[in-house]
Design a protein around this nucleic acid. Sequence first.
DNA 1: GATGAATGAGTTTTCATTCAT
DNA 2: GATGAATGAAAACTCATTCAT
Lengths: 214, 214, 214, 214
Amino acid sequence: MPGKREQNREQNRQALIKAVLDSVSEKGISETSVSEIIQRAGLSRGMIHLHFGGKDNLLAAAARSSSEEYYDGLEALLQSGGDSPQERVEMIVRGDLSEPVLNRRNVSIWYAFRGEARNRSAIAEYSDTRDDRLRNMILNAFTRIVREAGREDPVLSARDATHGTIALMEGMWTDYLLHPDRFDRDEALRIVFRFLAALFPAHFSLAGAVPPKN
Amino acid sequence: MPGKREQNREQNRQALIKAVLDSVSEKGISETSVSEIIQRAGLSRGMIHLHFGGKDNLLAAAARSSSEEYYDGLEALLQSGGDSPQERVEMIVRGDLSEPVLNRRNVSIWYAFRGEARNRSAIAEYSDTRDDRLRNMILNAFTRIVREAGREDPVLSARDATHGTIALMEGMWTDYLLHPDRFDRDEALRIVFRFLAALFPAHFSLAGAVPPKN
Amino acid sequence: MPGKREQNREQNRQALIKAVLDSVSEKGISETSVSEIIQRAGLSRGMIHLHFGGKDNLLAAAARSSSEEYYDGLEALLQSGGDSPQERVEMIVRGDLSEPVLNRRNVSIWYAFRGEARNRSAIAEYSDTRDDRLRNMILNAFTRIVREAGREDPVLSARDATHGTIALMEGMWTDYLLHPDRFDRDEALRIVFRFLAALFPAHFSLAGAVPPKN
Amino acid sequence: MPGKREQNREQNRQALIKAVLDSVSEKGISETSVSEIIQRAGLSRGMIHLHFGGKDNLLAAAARSSSEEYYDGLEALLQSGGDSPQERVEMIVRGDLSEPVLNRRNVSIWYAFRGEARNRSAIAEYSDTRDDRLRNMILNAFTRIVREAGREDPVLSARDATHGTIALMEGMWTDYLLHPDRFDRDEALRIVFRFLAALFPAHFSLAGAVPPKN
DNA sequence: GATGAATGAGTTTTCATTCAT
DNA sequence: GATGAATGAAAACTCATTCAT
């Protein structure tokens, strides 16, 4: 079995990354020490430096991994999805606010890294190129939507619609961060779609949205 | 001169808090060490424990101070402002996205503390009670707006409008965090108002908003 | 007692330097760890970084201190000494090979640092400027000796005499390093003076030198 | 081909020793880690323990190898040389100060090992027995020289002459160590011979020595 | 025999906190 | 009250050695 070792190597790398993400989500970056990491991963101290060359690189790799997971999930979602621009936007929004994506763990990780990103360029840089792909996917959809809606009453440029929609989703994440207990996923979705329906009444509706509780 | 000492005491407290906020905004929380703080404040090492009983308490006080500054500014703004609900919402939005409030320093500080808040309850707790006041101010305004708009066609409950508006503003802060260089304040404002105008056409318009550049 | 603390500070610095020199002479540089140093000095771990900013700087300071001690001793010796050039040369030689200067401890330290100096420039650099002073003291003396001897038959330029004499002394140190047990101080002295007497018969003699044992 | 493996084995041993010597001369002993060595040798990590049973043994073997190379070269030189004692001394001196022997690499290696020898007996011990052979070769020559010169005026016992000559050469090595840039090989040679000529005018002269530059 | 991933003891360094002055 | 030298626990990192493949 020739690949066994190679396989193990990769397994350990992944175990370390997972341990970092677990620790960051549960204890925050400042308490994610090397000791904490190896204990969670059940691996030896030297491993971190062997595979990543230091704790900082491991943190950066973990940030990248988390980012990749997010964008890969989003793209997989879009592959499976409908072709109309409104379907695509809807899918992205639903995906971004769905439980497998927007949850305590991810919110904690995401904000923890963002809080440090300013000062750790290695963490920051990866986010950007991937971020642009999300932005472009939404922009393409809105470009078509705006073109179609244009005859009637274009309220918003595609660029602004994209910017606003992303901001709205980001704001929901922040809401989750600050109030994980009272956060209501359906409410968040409903609000985003009400905003979109108000802007593009011909394309978005509230059909299927969960109505307010009260 | 009995008050002199007291005065000095307060001066030193403030100097330490300012030093923390400066350091957090420039270097991040993880590099805001006691040495860094006292060097910036030009005070002695013991001072931190003398006045705050430890570094953690000082950080919490700095977070609280930053939060207070934000909300005090907002309230002052509202005192000076018009009485119509749409004027109040507009003021809050303009205030929240204005340069004295939304700038590199504040964004850095805000996100740095939020990234750690999960794990440092002392930092987290203050945010909440004050946060509720902003939420209520906006909610009160939208309650009146919705009531007035209601006769026609209320698209959104006041709660949802509040939630969405706050989320939109938060999203703009995140945008600033991630892209401080390409962030365009006027664009951000315009987008928020376009969203609001779409939801409440009778109350919000784009009059006064800076038009898109292209 | 205002200066007490300042005084203590300096005492601790010196204690650390002494501990380094003790350890280097007894165990070598590679075994002179921080733990070893603080244990010998009876001080706390943090002290090294507090006073020197790191182990490397402390090692460099110790090397410098050792070098200074050597040259200061030599100069003190010369202050007290006669004025004739041959007396000055004799004093330097006797000083350099005397027990307080050439002993196990100093030889160990000197060679340990030299062995590392190539790669630790901080250690190397200090040596040079001081070294030049020794060289000049000897050169001045030989310049006068050569001038006086010149009428007869100057075998050697003052520069070469200086170079050779220093080399001879250095060689004696090496001999001590390699054979501390069989090293014979009187023999070393006698040999140096025999060389000098052969070169400048009018100025140096073996009067006073300890005769060979056999 | 049965010898192939054996041959490879020896090749690897030599590659490791060479890698150690290269590293020691370029980076010093303290930075000559196992990783550094195997990288230079292009061999696998386990090789060191396979062939030498550990890093320390490899270092000792490298020290021994370097020492052997030196003495073997010297003996080869003497084989090819003249029979008169003064010719033999001259050959040893010229050999010891010649470029293939006295160069940056060798000086670095030699002093690095000496600096550590105190504490690593394995390194130290080899030196001694070989060292004695050099000493004896010179002593034999001077014994004859002194006997011949004796009738006239024996200034120095053969033992002292040997001791002094070796010290003088050692001193030149030290000079090279400390000032590799300004070291002048011809000057070093000239000085040694002037010392010898002063002691044994009937046997040594400066004929053939490069005159001083100025 | 050869490899190089894995180990963990030991190293240097950092840093919040303490306390004699 | 104020200072900053001192402390030492805990952090990150290094590296010779081991051993499954």
